[in-house]
Design a protein around this nucleic acid. Structure first.
Lengths: 216, 216
DNA sequence: TAAAACAGACCAACCAGTCGGTCTTAAGTA
DNA sequence: TACTTAAGACCGACTGGTTGGTCTGTTTTA
């Protein structure tokens, strides 16, 4: 508590252990006893910090989605053009996979086990995030940066799906770094949504934060 | 047994009920008792047809992945050019969401609960499917239909992610039909992977099965 | 010294799977 | 056709193990 800050905080230790256990074995594949044993504490310690196993699951969900949402808001406010906004949101989000992979796995894998009262709270924030991607696409069409025939809703879900799915296969020990993966995703997305003229001309350099790999 | 065929087969009824229950509440959120009650049978009936609850989960997984794999093999053999192959595989796969949505949900949601001996069998088929998409991309690059700078592995996962994620949001009652969604996905994917020249010229008409919506 | 933090034995509920028994079906027999 | 019979299909009370959560303490902190 004194030194080390939250590192020695039992609550955070429990979350950390639970996170890794839930990721590999699922919420129902891990018992409270396993968690407390892994942490090196007791049932008493656990229930002093959490009212239930379900609340622990909620805390994990909430920590993650809150963080992601804040990042997205910053990206949205930082950049002006829709292209840059979309690029920023995607790149920041992909980066999160490095630090928060267990969170993300639990977030997408165990969300059906959230109790209704918690589910409502999480859904709200999750929808907010989705809305930011959607908004970027709408603005991109309006600004004539993106193709006008782009179906907003499906394109949004396609982008989210492509990025979210990363939790199923990404490994830190893999061949590509998370930065590289993020660049490739942005590249694929921009090729899919930008006006063809923008791509074939050199005009995309004006609308991008940085050159994607395909311009090399 | 006489008329109606497998529709009155208890085994199929159990799978059907379990499917819908697992989809909404998860494998561990549904008890064997709930399943047999839903079907209108008994524990005895259940364990006459399945050795365990785990085996039921495996059967659901296997039915689905076997079907998808067969479809992909047909698409691969039907079309010649890589573009058409990729287009065919994706379109067929997206169509599956209409008939097999519960299967898919269970397949991606509950796969971590598969017992090791079953997991091995499923992983084998799943990898085969992934390999077919990957192969189409490799061939597309070789044939100069796709961009040469395309990273094969990540692009494969991006496409799979985009399509797979559909199980999280697709609803039959939604605004777009599954056919439309499939077309949009193909459109986005092709814009992302095809040579820019092919898109800006009219040459894509030669390489496509049918005109995507954006040519209108 | 009191409140917060933690320990761990204990419990009630639940649940996958079992097992002895009954019912249905259809082939065999005369 | 009527009767026999055996195997497959199905029933449901029961069980042994497990699990989330409780409660009464003990230790640590401020």
């Amino acid at each position: 508590m004194k030194e080390g800050g939250f590192i020695s905080d039992l609550r955070q230790k429990i979350i950390q252990s639970a996170l890794l256990l839930f990721e590999k074995q699922g919420f129902h594949g891990v018992t409270v006893n396993q968690i407390v044993e892994d942490v090196g504490t007791s049932k008493g310690g656990f229930y002093h910090h959490f009212t239930s196993k379900d609340e622990l699951l909620f805390v994990i969900h909430d920590t993650f989605i809150t963080y992601v949402l804040e990042k997205a808001i910053i990206a949205k406010e930082t950049y002006q053009s829709p292209t840059k906004k979309l690029q920023g949101i995607v790149k920041d989000f992909v980066k999160v996979f490095d630090l928060y992979k267990p969170h993300i796995s639990v977030f997408y894998q165990e969300n059906i086990y959230l109790k209704p009262q918690y589910e409502i709270l999480i859904k709200k924030k999750r929808d907010q995030f989705k809305q930011m991607v959607k908004q970027a696409i709408i603005e991109g069409k309006k600004a004539k940066e993106f193709r006008e025939d782009l179906p907003v809703e499906i394109t949004t879900m396609a982008i989210l799906g492509m990025v979210n799915w990363t939790y199923k296969w990404y490994q830190q020990s893999g061949l590509k770094t998370i930065e590289e993966i993020g660049d490739i995703f942005v590249d694929l997305i921009l090729h899919a949504v930008l006006q063809p003229e923008t791509i074939s001309s050199k005009r995309y350099e004006e609308v991008l934060i940085e050159k994607p790999f395909f311009t090399i």
